[in-house]
């Protein structure tokens, strides 16, 4: 990771480009887009062809195969990214320069962008598509062509970025390391809890709800957990407070 060299006072590069680096968020957005295009293509090609009857070998050869690629990928993504962020943490946050801290704030904001980008596909795009599928066909398994993409593809992906951004802040930014931000925690754990809430959803569809009524109380767990995204407002306030304070510190330093 590059860092800003603090040289003589006042001679620092303070152009926006030296603080805001788009390379990784652009790569992640591109990768997520490609993955989502692949998922959508897969659904279009195989949902009607092999996805209607989960007892068929064709279902295993396509849909369960996709799931079998997804499940280890989840583990790799979670363990890989999170442990990498933790292992490469800054062990001397007490010695950080304001320039470096400001740069990291923008990296954090862009990390949250990657999180929000992945959340869009899970919370909006594939979520409503779940209605278009389940209101159209007879549900015969917990692993439907819609759920294999929504719950085991897109949701673990945003959890990767969400927890990743939280860990990034905690390991790279003194104020987030000093005290845990509750709005940040909410904005990450709420959407994360949607995955375990799937247990309730499947329980209900197995024992209780035989028809697909999308506004059914069975689905309200997702709604309440989704509200936690509003805590991004608190996080936004917090980040703006920290950044404006850094601006002041850096201007004061430069003015000396």
């Amino acid at each position: 990771m590059s860092s800003i060299q603090s040289g003589a006072r006042g001679a620092l590069d303070r152009s926006p480009g030296s603080f805001v680096q788009y390379k990784w968020p652009a790569i992640s957005a591109l990768a997520v887009t490609l993955l989502m295009v692949f998922y959508r293509w897969f659904q279009q090609t195989y949902a009607w062809a092999t996805g209607l009857d989960s007892t068929l070998p064709e279902f295993d050869a396509t849909w369960m195969k996709l799931l079998s690629y997804e499940l280890p990928l989840i583990g790799i993504m979670w363990v890989g990214l999170w442990s990498w962020i933790w292992m490469t943490r800054d062990r001397h946050l007490d010695k950080i320069t304001p320039q470096e801290e400001l740069r990291r704030y923008f990296t954090l904001v862009l990390f949250i962008f990657s999180y929000a980008f992945a959340v869009y596909f899970a919370g909006s795009f594939f979520a409503e598509q779940d209605a278009s599928w389940h209101q159209t066909v007879v549900r015969d398994t917990s692993f439907t062509p819609s759920h294999i993409v929504l719950f085991y593809g897109t949701m673990p992906l945003y959890v990767t970025f969400g927890v990743g951004s939280f860990l990034y802040a905690m390991t790279r930014l003194p104020k987030f390391a000093e005290r845990v931000s509750i709005p940040f925690l909410l904005a990450v754990t709420g959407p994360l809890m949607i995955i375990p809430n799937l247990g309730f959803n499947e329980w209900g569809h197995a024992f209780w709800m035989m028809e697909e009524f999308f506004s059914a109380p069975l689905h309200w767990g997702f709604v309440v957990l989704g509200w936690s995204v509003l805590a991004l407002g608190g996080l936004l306030m917090q980040i703006m407070m920290h950044i404006t304070e850094l601006f002041k510190r850096m201007d004061a330093e430069g003015a000396v």
Binding site: T50, L52, D53, L56, E58, A61, V138
Partner: peptide, 20 residues
């Protein structure tokens, strides 16, 4: 997946989720 589709198209026994 190609194999899957071939199988699906060749087989007469294809259901609609009722088997489960």
């Amino acid at each position: 997946v190609g194999l899957g589709v071939l199988l699906a198209l060749s087989g007469q026994v294809f259901a609609h989720g009722e088997r489960n």
